[in-house]
């Protein structure tokens, strides 16, 4: 069960009854089976009031389509951009997001937390 009521109340009702990483990993496998390039992003560390728990996934294809979430919607756009790079060069990378004064209105976490997100290619 998810520990992220913050996310649930804001978004998908349906996720309340399914483990929230299950679908995303199934989607990743399905997309690969359909011949799409697939990158997987995983929340590996959080500090403060991060909106999604450690272990949460976002799956991204080569066209920039995505499913799942690694935050409450704050940094997904940035992760998708990085994922496209990872798909191109094949090297995994670790991203870090937090609230820095100068970036708070760009890709910061409005809740004041800090997260590290690992992005890797599925191949």
């Amino acid at each position: 069960m998810t520990s992220s009521t913050h996310y649930q109340s804001a978004n998908h009702q349906a996720l309340e009854t399914v483990p929230d990483t299950l679908d995303v990993l199934a989607v990743a496998e399905g997309w690969r089976a359909a011949g799409r390039d697939v990158a997987l992003a995983t929340v590996m560390e959080t500090w403060g009031s991060a909106p999604r728990p450690v272990g949460s996934h976002l799956v991204i294809d080569g066209e920039g389509n995505f499913e799942g979430s690694v935050s409450g919607g704050c940094v997904e756009g940035a992760v998708v951009g990085e994922a496209l790079d990872v798909l191109e060069n094949g090297k995994p990378r670790m991203l870090e997001f937090g609230v820095a004064d100068e970036t708070a209105w760009k890709v910061g976490l409005s809740c004041g937390g800090r997260i590290r997100v690992y992005v890797e290619k599925v191949d």
Binding site: L25, A26, E29, R32, L40, M94, Y118, E120, V122, D123
Partner: peptide, 26 residues
């Protein structure tokens, strides 16, 4: 992640078996 590993992970989940994906960051 290796696709075969992802498939195995999904198989374990579907069968209601516990598992841990271990990733060395370096």
């Amino acid at each position: 992640m290796d696709l075969a590993l992802l498939k195995q992970l999904n198989r374990e989940r579907a069968a209601r078996r516990g598992c841990i994906l271990v990733s060395e960051i370096a």
